[in-house]
């Protein structure tokens, strides 16, 4: 089953790339093989799409929002990561849903999310 093998190999490569990317900071490993990058991008895009349900399309609140849920897009990755870690550790006074939500994401996922939202907005993020 050559197809199956090749897909599986891609998965393995991507997992390695993703792990390296997650541990090395700052992450410049976005230059992995195109197929691996595609998987990583789709995985991270899907993960980030968990956030946009509240934080708005592309991580930016829509017009008419009161600002009670902040923009994620355009914040620095270090600041985003620190904020997520603080929520997860219960260190944010006055927090509402985020301390619980962050229990559902591990260090590598938080790293990937921080980098994702730190990128400048695209035309169709």
């Amino acid at each position: 089953m050559p197809l199956a093998r090749s897909i599986h190999t891609q998965t393995a490569i991507t997992l390695i790339a993703f792990t390296v990317c997650a541990l090395a900071l700052p992450c410049a490993a976005q230059t992995a093989a195109p197929a691996a990058a595609a998987l990583q991008n789709l995985d991270t895009a899907l993960l980030a799409a968990n956030c946009t349900t509240c934080h708005g399309p592309g991580g930016q609140p829509p017009a008419g929002s009161s600002g009670s849920i902040p923009a994620l897009r355009g914040q620095g990755s270090a600041a985003l990561l620190e904020r997520m870690q603080a929520f997860k550790a219960g260190r944010v006074a006055g927090a509402t849903v985020m301390p619980l939500l962050m229990q559902g994401y591990d260090a590598a996922q938080m790293q990937a999310l921080a980098q994702w939202f730190a990128q400048p907005a695209k035309a169709k993020p």
Binding site: T53, C54, G56, P57, P61, P62, S66, S68, I69
Partner: peptide, 16 residues
């Protein structure tokens, strides 16, 4: 805060 966030959630998910 959760009342305001609820309203902002509705705006965000509708736009999404």
């Amino acid at each position: 805060a959760e009342a305001r966030q609820g309203a902002d959630w509705y705006a965000a998910i509708s736009a999404d």
